[in-house]
Design a protein around this nucleic acid. Structure first.
Length: 133
DNA sequence: GCCAACGTTGGC
DNA sequence: GCCAACGTTGGC
């Protein structure tokens, strides 16, 4: 199963919202590059859930979710269904990811404004080594 | 609050 | 079709 990462502004829609709703349609994405990523999603794929910067907290990956539908078009946007799975055992910050210098070529580091992306296998391994996943 | 990155718009 | 102006996003 592939891993993806989605970004959310927790003041608009947080991982806790998804936890409460259990599942939801992810229809926040407006960007063509991100739409191409969504089109490659399949039911059962894993999704890392990322919170962007707020006044209270630095950007962090907070949880694990999964894709529960085929991608589809809804009012011109590409959307998919997402279900809550679990919180990471501890949040992993963008700062730590950058400091490792292991993922300098990853879109999370290189392309701040991309909100939906693939996740390299090495990053999953790194999360597991650190006991976060 | 600032600014860099970047997507979009509109004039030519 | 190019590009300057402008708006938005997201990290710091």
């Amino acid at each position: 199963m592939a891993f993806f990462l989605v970004k959310a502004d927790p003041e608009r829609y947080s991982f806790e919202n998804l936890e409460r709703n259990k599942n939801d349609t992810w229809d926040w994405v407006d960007n063509h590059q991100a739409w191409r990523v969504i089109q490659s999603m399949r039911p059962g794929d894993n999704v890392l859930f990322y919170h962007t910067t707020t006044s209270r907290s630095e950007p962090v990956i907070v949880g694990l979710a999964c894709v529960t539908s085929e991608p589809r078009q809804e009012s011109g946007k590409w959307v998919f269904d997402i279900a809550f799975e679990r919180h990471l055992s501890h949040p992993v910050s963008l700062r730590e990811i950058k400091e490792s210098h292991l993922f300098d070529n990853w879109a999370l580091v290189r392309q701040a404004r991309l909100s939906t992306m693939n996740v390299p296998d090495e990053f999953i391994g790194w999360l597991k080594e650190r006991g976060a996943l």
